[in-house]
Write a protein that binds this DNA or RNA. Structure first.
Lengths: 133, 133
DNA sequence: TTTGATACTAACTTTTTTGTATGTACTTGT
DNA sequence: ACAAGTACATACAAAAAAGTTAGTATCAAA
């Protein structure tokens, strides 16, 4: 009764050794990581940090509409995943900087690719949607 | 009181004409599209269909754990976005096929890139997470 | 002395997403 | 007669995500 049948898709873009399909199974931890980087604030934080180090308050201003709670939460999960590096300077008032790790950069540029594609194609998508109502 | 200040990130990967930042503003419709393709079942449907046309019942089997409601819903939103093409044959019992449109293929391969990266790097990510607890 | 800036946390509520259970329509097989 | 397979829809419930509000600590400036 296990659900780990892995149909081979053979799209050729992943090494044969992995044979994707883990992602098709429910409890695969990659889904969690995927969620962390694709959710609204996670995505924006990663893309924002592609432009370089920012401190907490910078991110608050940049990610318009983010609450302090959501920003903290987002940064913490991405830090725990190893995508974001947090550097706290022990001064008063507090000074905390956030930047992308190497892994963070790698995933962020892939996210950016997706976002760019959507932004560029948005007019076509919207046009299509309006046509079919 | 409008929130459309667009800080230029100059990551160089999007055409200057667009100057990203729309995605940073809350009501940007690209966020909706993004959600449709990055949510659990949307992602899996797109990647599954990269392997070729599938009918409803095939997708049900492939996307293990998906309910009929969630599958219908997912396929409908992706169809409305213009990523998936639905072809119904007027026979009994019903026969409906789903495939990717050209736009669907373009976005699906980008999604696949992301998923592949995560799957390949998952061991490192997990190792990192276990180290920092 | 009150306010403001910094970077948060904690409790709680609202909203959104996801899932479950059931129903529909039509035909073939038993 | 009745279950099975097909591709859905609809009402409802559960779970998860997101947002709100208030509070913490410390110092400096007004």
């Amino acid at each position: 009764m296990e659900n780990n049948s892995q149909t081979k898709l053979s799209t050729g873009s992943i090494s044969k050794a992995i044979e994707r399909g883990m992602v098709f199974s429910d409890k695969c931890p990659s889904r969690e990581i995927f969620k962390h980087v694709t959710n609204k604030w996670g995505l924006l934080a990663l893309v924002a940090l592609l432009g370089g180090t920012l401190r907490y308050s910078d991110l608050r201003r940049k990610l318009q509409g983010v609450s302090e709670k959501m920003l903290s939460q987002t940064l913490q999960t991405l830090e725990q995943d190893g995508f974001i590096i947090r550097t706290a300077y022990p001064v008063i008032p507090p000074h905390v900087e956030y930047s992308l790790s190497e892994m963070g950069k790698e995933i962020a540029i892939r996210m950016e690719t997706l976002v760019d594609w959507i932004e560029i194609n948005l007019p076509n998508i919207m046009k299509y949607k309006s046509k079919i109502q």
